[in-house]
Simulated scan of single mutants.
Amino acid sequence: MRRSYARSSRGSYHPKMLTKVIIYAYAQRIYSSRQIAKSVRENIIFMWIAGRQRPDFRTINRFRSERMKEVLEKIFTAVLQFYWKRT
Rank of each mutant, 00 (worst) to 15 (best):
G11P: 00
L18M: 12
W48M: 15
R41H: 11
S39T: 08
A27V: 08
P55L: 04
I22S: 01
A50T: 08
S33T: 03
V40C: 12
P15F: 11
A37L: 04
K20P: 02
I49S: 00
T19V: 03
R29E: 15
I22C: 01
N43H: 04
T19E: 13
V21M: 03
I30F: 05
E42C: 05
P55S: 05
P15A: 07
L18I: 01
R34I: 06
M47L: 04
E42S: 06
K38V: 04
N43S: 13
F46Y: 05
I49N: 00
Y31R: 08
M17T: 11
K20V: 03
I49Q: 00
Q53F: 11
I36T: 07
I23D: 07
I44F: 03
G11W: 03
A50D: 03
R54I: 13
R10I: 10
I44Q: 11
V21W: 00
I36C: 10
H14C: 08
A27C: 12
S33N: 03
G51W: 06
Q35W: 15
S39G: 15
I36N: 08
H14P: 03
I23M: 10
K38Y: 09
K38G: 02
A27T: 13
Y13H: 09
R34N: 06
L18G: 02
I44P: 09
R34Y: 09
W48L: 15
A27E: 13
R10E: 08
I22T: 01
S33E: 06
I45A: 14
S39N: 13
G11S: 00
K16H: 11
T19N: 05
I23N: 00
V21G: 12
V21F: 06
M47N: 15
R29P: 02
Q28M: 14
I44T: 07
I22A: 02
Q53P: 12
W48S: 14
A37P: 09
I49G: 03
R54F: 12
V40S: 13
I44A: 10
A37Q: 02
R54T: 10
P55I: 00
I45K: 06
S12M: 07
T19L: 03
W48N: 12
F46K: 00
M47P: 06
S32I: 13
Q28P: 00
A25G: 09
Y13P: 01
Y13V: 04
K16G: 14
R10L: 12
I22E: 06
A25L: 00
E42L: 11
A50Q: 05
Y31W: 14
Q35P: 03
I22V: 01
Y31S: 09
K16N: 10
R10Y: 07
P55T: 05
P55W: 08
K38I: 06
R41C: 07
R54D: 04
N43P: 09
R54L: 12
S32K: 01
F46V: 02
R10D: 08
M17P: 11
M47S: 13
R52T: 15
